[in-house]
Design a binder for these strands. Structure first.
Lengths: 236, 236
DNA sequence: TGACTACCTAGCCAAATGGCTAGGTGAAGG
DNA sequence: CCTTCACCTAGCCATTTGGCTAGGTAGTCA
């Protein structure tokens, strides 16, 4: 029942896409990427019922999403960045899509708001960021249209978040290194610095070092706060 | 466009409902409670397209959900327990519905799995627990039917979670008191015990007391772990 | 009445943490 | 070549914490 994503020879249709706006007679073509069937069906239903746009493909993984964009060269990619265990892969995907298909606009439809994700996504060329729980049925159509026209669409609360995010760290939203994330996860599991050190084959001092850096990056002052912020950012 | 929930005199139609199974000719009547439009539309679409059931009402808040059940006395209530800022209200709602309308079966459709919520929900008479991201389109219809027939439906990973949850705490999944939750939230914000004490007008000793109790209940040994578990349980 | 719950307080001590300075390495990239 | 980045280590010291014992009050419920 779902539109299949990879079953044809890849005919290159990009030229007419990347050269700018499509013919006004052509329907707006959308690819939806979300791991949740219910959301995919709901999105398709809302979009196709209320607007003249068409959902040409659905994807449930990062790979499938990229394949779908490759194959269909859609006008808009509606995506929930969280398609797997590693949320940061969603960000890489955005980068790749905006890089290779500048004409394909990306509208992120997030489950929850995370300052880090919002800022990083916009930095990678995402032109819209809405929150699933806040968006109304009619806003969705408008949002897609606006994004397609090159406007930046930010849902409730997203705007102020961006302002804060960009302001506080003067344009360089520092992101955690692998090691830091590893240590934070161990902290969240209730391990002491000594235990973490043994587990990671590093010294206790190094553990503290990583935590200090993570504290600064997350603007936290206590390990409990680090865990909270990392958790809220979907990093755990 | 959405089915309106409260605009009529409440004609009491419960007698024929609470006396047991409906006529086999009558369609299965479903109330959907979810704050997310996309999910509501998707659910309605999947259910009405693939099965002979009907979604008779949608609700986006705890009050509206209860009103809808009051008014329609549905066969099944499909609900995401997280309809507002306080998740525990969803549990109270389940209790009330199973109490007043034993014939109305409840199928929880959760965003994410939380051991505490699962256990508490089942304790309150919920007969089905599925996870939005895991469920497939056809499983949904089957699940609803099974729940309506009195079966207990547990999604992927839920079963083992229940086993652990009931086993580890010998049947009494202790839940956090208001005060404990208050303290945990403060800990998550990075406050020290002293700061928390001042904020809550209690002594530092009391803060430590509450945290010790919370540690035991959440099976954590460090405040960072408490925050992590509370966060994972959707309590923050 | 007694049992139970939620809540509150005090003090003790070993251990863990946070905040800091002051260094080191190897690899990648302009 | 020099810079930057991620990573690693050491030591110091005040503060915070975890874990404990041993009490108290007020309210609810049987």
């Amino acid at each position: 029942m779902d539109t299949d994503v990879r079953n044809e020879v890849k005919v290159d249709q990009r030229p007419d896409v990347s050269l700018g706006r499509r013919s006004p007679l052509a329907k707006t073509r959308i690819v939806v990427a979300d791991r949740n069937v219910i959301t995919r069906v709901g999105l398709r239903s809302i979009i196709e019922r209320n607007t003249g746009m068409a959902v040409v493909a659905e994807a449930t993984s990062y790979e499938a999403a990229l394949d779908a964009v490759d194959e269909h060269g859609p006008d808009v990619l509606i995506i929930d960045l969280d398609l797997g265990d590693d949320t940061t892969r969603g960000l890489k995907l955005c980068e790749e899509v905006t890089d290779r298909y500048p004409a394909t606009k990306i509208l992120v439809l997030a489950q929850k708001l995370s300052e880090m994700i919002v800022v990083e996504a916009l930095r990678r060329g995402v032109t819209g960021y809405l929150c699933k729980d806040d968006v109304k049925a009619d806003e969705l159509g408008k949002g897609v249209r606006a994004v397609q026209d090159g406007e930046t669409v930010l849902g409730k609360g997203v705007g102020s978040m961006v302002a804060r995010g960009l302001g506080s760290t003067r344009g360089a939203a520092e992101h955690l290194t692998d090691r830091e994330l590893e240590v934070i996860r161990a902290v969240a599991a209730g391990l002491s610095n000594k235990q973490i050190a043994q587990q990671a084959f590093i010294s206790e001092s190094t553990v503290k070092f990583h935590l200090q850096n993570a504290s600064r990056k997350l603007n936290a002052h206590r390990r409990a706060e680090i865990v909270h912020r990392a958790s809220a950012a979907g990093l755990l």
